[in-house]
Computed example of a mutant assay.
Amino acid sequence: MQDDFQYVGFWARVGATVIDVIIILCITVPLTLMIYGFAYYDSTAIVAGPADILINWIMPAVAVILLWLKFQATPGKMVVGARVVDARTGATMTPGQAVVRYLAYIVSALPLLLGYIWISFDSRKQGWHDKIAGTIVIRPKVQGVEAVKFGADA
């Protein structure tokens, strides 16, 4: 079974993250605007109020954690065929691992995104958040892809 999968690298994960961020913004921005208006984006406050915490911090965290636990992936990871699994067993991560992984995103981001860049150099393509939570990101191995042919060979 292990031979059927490969680790998911940095750029595929960046693409997945971009998709996820766009989806999250499509949900959170209209809700935030309905409650706080455009003045929300002019404010220098870290938190505008209880609805801000709920919409922009708690809802995305709960959604991502639930998606990991139910589908082993967020929509972006689904698009690239990736799944987040327990690094030891390959099974769905535990709820504790999911919460730790989400919170560990902060650890990966704080030192100039070094914890994310680490994915490029790690043999198992783990970011710091993966190492902390004991997870890996995998997808089915690409096999039998036909080579590109040009000119007379085509």
Rank of each mutant, 00 (worst) to 15 (best):
D3R: 07
D3I: 06
D4H: 11
Q6N: 07
W11N: 05
W11M: 14
A12I: 03
G15Q: 13
A16V: 05
A16K: 05
V18L: 14
V18M: 12
D20H: 12
D20G: 10
D20E: 12
I22W: 12
L25K: 09
L25C: 12
I27R: 12
T28G: 01
V29Q: 11
L31K: 02
L31V: 00
T32W: 08
L33S: 12
M34S: 15
I35N: 13
Y36N: 12
Y36F: 15
G37Q: 12
A39F: 05
A39K: 14
Y40P: 02
Y40W: 06
Y41W: 12
Y41R: 01
S43D: 13
T44F: 14
T44L: 15
T44M: 13
T44Q: 15
A45Y: 01
I46E: 04
V47I: 15
G49V: 01
P50C: 00
D52L: 00
W57L: 11
W57S: 09
I58P: 00
M59V: 13
P60F: 00
P60H: 00
A61S: 11
A63G: 00
A63E: 00
V64T: 07
L66N: 06
L66P: 00
L67C: 11
L69V: 02
Q72I: 10
A73K: 02
G76A: 10
K77H: 11
K77L: 10
M78A: 13
M78Q: 13
M78E: 10
V80H: 10
R83W: 02
V85C: 11
D86K: 02
A87S: 14
R88C: 10
T89D: 07
A91Y: 04
T92G: 09
M93N: 06
T94S: 15
P95C: 02
G96H: 09
A98D: 05
A98T: 06
V99W: 04
V99C: 08
V100A: 04
R101W: 02
Y102R: 03
Y102L: 07
L103S: 04
A104T: 01
Y105V: 08
I106Q: 09
V107I: 15
V107T: 08
A109D: 09
A109P: 09
P111F: 06
P111I: 03
L114M: 09
L114G: 10
G115S: 10
G115R: 01
W118Y: 14
I119P: 11
S120W: 15
F121Y: 15
F121P: 10
D122G: 06
S123W: 05
S123L: 08
K125G: 06
Q126G: 12
G127I: 01
G127R: 03
H129F: 04
K131S: 07
I132M: 03
A133D: 10
I136T: 05
I136H: 05
I136K: 06
I136E: 03
P140R: 04
P140V: 00
K141R: 14
K141G: 02
V145H: 05
E146R: 14
V148H: 03
K149A: 04
F150S: 08
F150V: 14
G151I: 03
D153W: 05
A154Q: 11
